[in-house]
Design a binder for these strands. Structure first.
Lengths: 361, 361
DNA sequence: CTGAAAGCGCTTACAG
DNA sequence: CTGAAAGCGCTTACAG
């Protein structure tokens, strides 16, 4: 039983005995209207159940009041996230008893959405969440351009050149990856996080060489994390080697198995949780006790890492914060198109769990 | 370095040497335009980087192409979800080894959002996700009305009368709760799910009375679940009693403690996971072995229930499906304002875990 | 198949 | 403080 024709400013104006300009003013700059007039208009609005038409408002006002967020669709597994260097104070959180409650757990994109959502609505903007399958994503990006006042894109969900093109037309920020000067970006301190956890490992590892399970060479995240690792391992005096995984659990297990064929590591530092989880399994099967004989760490802070045997020490990415900061950065860009480019890098946490031995620095 | 004035239909028309009507047609009903003309227009669009303005399109076309989803904000804990009766075939899934992967785990609203998102984009609509703090939520609902072609609201996030009022003006479906004839609704089969799990419990419980841990009296969910319980327990010949909790872990623990003061139950059937988890803790402290001396079940399928000791058998709500169905129901309503009211009730699953003993019916 | 024109419902200078 | 009027960028009958 929905609609009859909804009331417009004209209806309100007629009913309140004013012009439509005044109705508009009551809604947008109430202080410019005499109190008595304002009250009459407000009453009319209420009586008629008037709700402003956002399309008309958007057209006339040249702004939609909407922010767009483009996330990977559901046809393919989530794309890994880029990032880079910097050196913040990394907070170590005792999660030995698993009492640390990650705000809303680690659903990478869902946390991001939530962060954006909170921040957007808090700033008076609505959030349009766009996903869509791989292939159509660039179409969706174009579509978004016409719908919103600004766009947040997750790096790599759309080809870089398309992102750059969109950024030229509309305020845009790239999340979880660098934009290489073509747009503002907000990401996580991959190198700093990896460096921190590496230091932690080096300070407490049992005898034996260090095995670094890196990511694919084309992963910006992987590159930055490895950079953080090298920063600490170089000159540490430890023996170490690097293996590359595809960031999957199987990949981690496979490289672990291969390594175990000729060394018995005292530490396995993985560039993401999945591969660390795979390594954990192999170590167990090889009868190597974690953390007594070998410590293991991951990166990301996915939920599964909390429940592995033993629970995995890992570097957690503050995705909700990333969302919040992305929105704030976007709003800044919207306010000043000529402001210098931003490349925000958020600090990460390290969640200490049993895979890296008892507590302490 | 964003904008210069973006190109409009006029620019495209000029460049292609056609009228704006033709440009519009190329975009909206290409088959009405000669191939050669179409190509020229498309080329112009491409060269200019033209993107249609959604506000103008929405205003002229009287549709926005956007669906709105109103979810609880982030200032308060998620509101419990209503629902009601029906009798579907309930699927029992062996999750004894925790190998059952709940699609995207149980973040109640996030799953819902995801379901809506998939379904909306798949149907050619964009999804506007609105939350906002408790108090402002009714304002947000009004705001949504002006922005979208249809609205999905989670029951109880906004006072029922406001939902009803909105439903009179715009296509609207209520999710996770009944709309009492004022709007279409999509929800979960609370009673059927509880009845099923109750049957399961009765068929396998050890000696001892049944304790039902119900929800607050004002929770529609609670009421329906209790109804399902009573349906099975009545005439079962079992001794039983009901206690009411506030759906929290502490509430569950407290009522469990109280009950243990004078009975030693053979089964605890809780109306939600949280309270079941609380009960589990109390039973352990009382030295009662679950499932050997007493079986325990929950409802909802939250993530924590997978990791409790022992893992909790529970009734899982298919929230992604709820989202998908909500969108489909909404689209139907949008297509036909006068269609009879819908009140969809989706079947639930029961996840079998250790708290209810070894497998089998 | 294509164009001229009206109209969608607002906002915002510009006068007064 | 308030009103008349232009204009935002499209879509869609209506003619031809």
């Amino acid at each position: 039983m929905p609609p009859r024709k909804p009331p417009t400013v004209y209806d309100v104006a007629t009913r309140a005995g004013v012009s439509i300009a005044t109705v508009s003013r009551v809604l947008r700059s109430p202080q410019k209207v005499t109190e008595s007039t304002r009250e009459r208009v407000l009453a009319a609005i209420d009586e008629l159940g008037y709700v402003p038409n956002a399309s008309a408002r958007g057209l006339a006002g040249r702004r939609t009041g909407v922010l767009g967020l483009l996330i990977p669709g559901h046809d393919a597994p989530p794309v890994p996230q880029p990032g880079s260097a910097g050196d913040h104070v990394v907070e170590f959180i005792d999660d030995m008893d698993r009492s640390f409650v990650d705000p809303e757990r680690n659903h990478y994109f869902e946390q991001l959405v939530r962060g954006c959502e909170i921040s957007a609505w808090g700033s008076g903007y609505a959030l349009l969440v766009a996903s869509g399958p791989d292939l159509s994503r660039s179409v969706v990006l174009d579509d978004l351009e016409g719908r919103v006042d600004g766009i947040i894109v997750i790096s790599r969900t759309v080809p870089d050149d398309l992102i750059a093109r969109s950024a030229r037309r509309v305020p845009l920020v790239v999340v979880a990856g660098r934009a290489a000067g073509t747009a503002d970006s907000v990401r996580v301190d991959n190198a700093g996080g990896m460096a921190a956890v590496t230091r932690h490992v080096l300070a407490r590892k049992p005898e034996g060489p260090v095995l670094y399970l890196g990511g694919p060479a084309d992963s910006p995240d992987g590159v930055e994390r490895e950079e953080g690792f090298r920063r600490e391992i170089d000159g540490s005096g430890e023996t170490w080697r690097i293996a590359s995984t595809d960031f999957t659990t199987e990949g981690g297990a496979q490289e672990m198995r291969r390594a175990l064929a000729d060394v018995r590591p005292g530490a396995v530092i993985a560039a993401n949780d999945q591969s660390a989880l795979g390594a954990l399994t192999e170590l167990r099967e090889a009868g190597i006790s974690v953390p007594d004989d070998c410590v293991v760490t991951g990166f990301d802070g996915i939920e599964d890492a909390r429940w592995s045997r033993p629970p995995l020490t890992t570097v957690r990415q503050p995705m909700t914060d990333v969302g919040v900061q992305a929105v704030q950065t976007l709003l800044r860009r919207m306010a000043d198109a000529d402001a210098p480019g931003q490349d925000l890098q958020l600090p990460v946490d390290v969640l200490l769990r049993e895979s890296c031995g008892p507590l302490g620095r």
